[in-house]
Amino acid sequence: MEVDNHGNELHTQTQPMDVEIFSAPKGQQAKCGKHDVDLGETLHEMIAEDSLDFGSWTFLISEIEKVHSDNIDMLSLAYDSFLSKFLLCHWYWTKYAYHKARLCTVVEAVDIFERAVESTTFSVGFWLNYCTFSESFLMDPSDIRRVYERAFSFVGKDYNCHVLWDKYLQFEFSQQQWGMLAHIYIRVLKFPTKGLHFYCDKYDMLLMVIRFCNFI
């Protein structure tokens, strides 16, 4: 389990998340419970039925990921169909994007995240996943910063946004951009986030280090 500097659990997504469901939902056991089942046929049946059974969809997607993990056409059809009905499931947008990055291109993965922005605009968890992805796959630090800045334009004042501010601070620390780091601390101290006292202490420590280095 990954935790932030305040001891809070982080729900980040650094790689596709496996969904474990121990038994098939009612009505799907006959369709999805056996290894020799035609998952493609089941998928098309659920699309034709315009199914809104969340449990059946998530179970089917998990089975497709196990059996057809490299079939991007089937994965895309399953995710597109599911997410057209359950737009707010940012975990599944993230899983879909990582499949695209693994089997297609980073550009196509970014396109999935950008589609998700339209429906999960104010989700801290979504932006945390998008920024995590950006740090892993985007080469230019400026591009990564742009994703962070977009995130803060929507959720920067959220009380629980400290997990995202933490990640941005860690990124700038890794880049050794001390001026940028100090500027981010000043910004985050303007909002009553959950980690406000922590940021205040860290900012004071940073100023002491900068002054000491300038003195030397």
Rank of each mutant, 00 (worst) to 15 (best):
Y159I: 10
R102E: 15
T105E: 01
F154I: 04
W57D: 00
C32H: 03
W93I: 09
Y79R: 02
V106L: 02
E108C: 07
Q28A: 15
S134C: 01
I61H: 01
I112G: 02
L128N: 15
F82S: 03
F152T: 07
E114W: 12
S84H: 12
Y98E: 01
L60H: 00
M74I: 02
I72H: 06
A109Q: 08
C32T: 11
L138H: 02
M139F: 09
S76P: 11
D80V: 15
A24P: 07
F152M: 01
E135T: 05
S81V: 09
V107S: 14
L128S: 09
I64R: 01
D158T: 08
L75W: 00
I72F: 04
E135P: 01
S123E: 11
D53Q: 14
E108L: 06
F86L: 06
S81H: 08
K95T: 14
S56A: 14
T132A: 14
C89P: 06
E41V: 10
S69H: 12
P25N: 01
C89E: 13
A116I: 08
L88T: 12
G55S: 13
F82C: 03
T42H: 05
L88H: 11
L77M: 15
G156S: 13
T42F: 07
S119C: 13
S123P: 08
L75E: 00
S51Q: 09
S56L: 02
M46G: 01
M139A: 07
N160Q: 13
G55V: 05
N160K: 10
L103C: 00
L83I: 12
H68G: 00
E63H: 05
P141T: 08
H44C: 11
S51C: 07
